[in-house]
Amino acid sequence: MEGLGEVATWEMDMAGWHLVFNATTIMMTLVIVALLLLFGWQAARKRAPVPNLFQVVGELFVVTFWGLTRDALDEKLAKKYFPLICSLFMFLVLSNWIGIIPWMEEPTKDLNTTLGLGIMGFFIAHFCGIQAKGLKAYVKQYFEPMFFMMPLNVIGEIAKVVSISFRLYGNIMGGSIIILVVTYLVYGLLLPPFLNAFFGLFVGTVQAFVFTMLTLVYISVQVR
C-alpha cells in the first residue's frame, strides 16, 4: 500500500530546464500505438468479401463511428474529422483495457495523457469554430449575452477541458485504486478478477466512448 503515490520517472536537464518524464506512461503509450498499428495492418492486409476476424472488428469501428460523426457534423466536415474520432476511441479503449493484463498499466491512469488529449480536442474544436464562423463572429460569442460576461465565458470553455480530462483520469485512477485496495484486503482471493472486468472492461469502454463523444460534441457546438 505504500507504493500508492510513487511513479517511475526519467529525469533530464536540457537548456536550463529540469524535465521529468513519467516512464511508465511513455512506455505504455508506445505499446498501445504499436498494438494499434499491428491491428490496422492485420485488418487491411487481406481485404475480402468474407472478412477475417480483424477486418470484422475494424469495420465495426468504422461503421459505428462514421454514423455518429455524420449525425453530429455535416457530410464534408465528417469526412475530415472521422479519422480523428475513430482513432481516438480505439486508442482510449485499448488504453483502458490493457490494465487487466498483469504488469501492464493504463496510460489513461496518468493525468498527462488525458489532459493532453483534452487540450488537443479543445484546440481542434476552436479552430473549427473560427474556420466555420469567421474570427469576428467567433470572438463576438464570448461577449454574449452581455459584454462583462466575457471572463466567465472564457473560464467556461477552459472548464470543459478540465471536466473532460479529469472524468477519464478519475474513473481509471479510481478503478485501479479500488482494485488495489480490495486486492490487499482480501489477500488477492476471489474478488479481483470481477473488479478488473467491471472497472477495466465495462467502465473503461463507457468512459472511452464518453470522452470520444464529448470531443465530437464540442466540435459540433463550435461549428453550428
Binding site: 472548464a159 470543459k160 478540465v162 471536466s163 479529469f166 472524468r167 478519475g170 463507457v206 466512448f209 464518453v210 463523444m213 464529448l214 460534441v217
Partner: peptide
C-alpha cells in the same frame, strides 16, 4: 451518455 457525462462535470470540478 453525453447528457449524463455533461451533468457530471460539476462533480469533476
Amino acid at each position: 451518455l453525453i447528457g449524463a457525462g455533461v451533468a457530471q462535470s460539476t462533480a469533476i470540478y
